[in-house]
């Protein structure tokens, strides 16, 4: 028990909370068909995270989030600038800018000496959950002991706050975000400016990328952003249930992925632990496959209904003579 509390509880919570933050925000990307924007942002914010870490010398969230935001803004400006100067297609410009900024982040890790402390390329690839330990824990009583709880890794507390803020924002802007996601032109026509809302989504994605950085790294964060929303989308056509199911999927992804990575090797007699971030993505992939195959719209449908895709092609126009 003490070993679980000391070594596994904090990473388990961190993985779950990070996946919840990403999974909820990922809905806003998936439903507006811009999931790859999450991938792009997660790459682009890396130099910001490194600089924030380098300047502040801590992994405390505020400087890292500030750095990530600054990097996201720089990326957006660079994209606008390169597009204006080159007339390349937007996809190419985004690819150039985001991979370039990611590379810059890697270089900065080496140059600033951040890798000597806590932040190295492994962390970018896999996250650093194993760094979250709670040595003050002595048995189950520590969960109620204020002195021991004060020693609990701050990253987990920060993640809990970020999750609470995310949920609060989604609730406060519930109908506005749905409107802006479904029909931005109509939203503007009735004075509900969607631009600030899409900017807010960008900010939230940046925050989610930072939140998930220590848990899953910069690369696999895309799985945390997209997979829970995709799983939910395969299971429901309801907007509210979409968010609820994505949260459930994100929790299973985070907790289940960590659990499999930490405990399965022992059960299987492997000498070493498995990578938690990778296992989370694997768990999410398995869930997605199950949802697609066995969900209400898949080939094995319990209800026997198939989703109609009426909107893909416009209905052919009746000849005028029929009128």
């Amino acid at each position: 028990m003490t070993e679980f509390l000391q070594l596994d509880l904090a990473p388990l919570l961190a993985a779950t909370l990070a996946c919840l933050v990403c999974g909820l925000i990922g809905n806003l990307l998936l439903l507006t068909r811009q999931s790859l924007l999450g991938d792009a942002i997660s790459h682009a914010v890396l130099p910001g995270i490194v600089v924030g870490f380098w300047i502040s010398g801590t992994r405390a969230a505020p400087p890292l989030v500030a750095g990530a935001m600054a990097a996201a803004i720089v990326a957006a400006l660079l994209i606008a600038l390169v597009r204006r100067l080159t007339r390349l297609e937007p996809g190419a410009v985004m690819g150039l800018v985001f991979s370039g900024m990611f590379a810059l982040g890697i270089v900065l890790i080496e140059v600033t000496g951040a890798h000597a402390v806590d932040l190295d390329v492994d962390c970018v690839l896999y996250g650093q959950l194993e760094a979250l330990i709670w040595p003050a824990a002595q048995g189950a009583g520590s969960l109620l002991d204020p002195a021991a709880l004060a020693e609990f890794p701050a990253e987990v507390k920060t993640l809990a706050v970020v999750l609470a803020l995310t949920v609060a924002l989604l609730a406060l802007l519930w109908k506005e975000l749905r409107l802006a996601a479904f029909d931005p032109d109509f939203a503007r026509s009735i004075g509900f400016a969607p631009r600030p809302l899409s900017l807010l989504v960008l900010v939230l994605v940046s925050v989610a990328c930072v939140a998930a950085f220590w848990a899953v790294g910069s690369i696999l964060v895309i799985a945390a952003l997209v997979a829970p929303a995709a799983i939910a989308r395969a299971l429901t056509d309801s907007y509210a249930r979409q968010f609820a199911l994505s949260a459930a999927a994100a929790a299973v992804m985070g907790a289940g992925g960590y659990w499999v990575a930490a405990l399965a090797p022992e059960a299987l007699g492997l000498g070493h632990g498995l990578n938690a971030a990778g296992m989370m993505a694997v768990v999410a992939g398995v869930m997605l496959a199950g949802a697609v195959v066995f969900g209400p719209f898949g080939p094995v449908r319990p209800g026997g209904q198939r989703r109609r895709r009426a909107a893909a092609a416009p209905v052919p126009r009746l000849p005028a003579a029929a009128g």
Partner: peptide
Amino acid sequence: YLPQRASVDWDFPA
């Protein structure tokens, strides 16, 4: 305003 029907994603969960 009534936008063109094709301007939105009708697969949207609403």
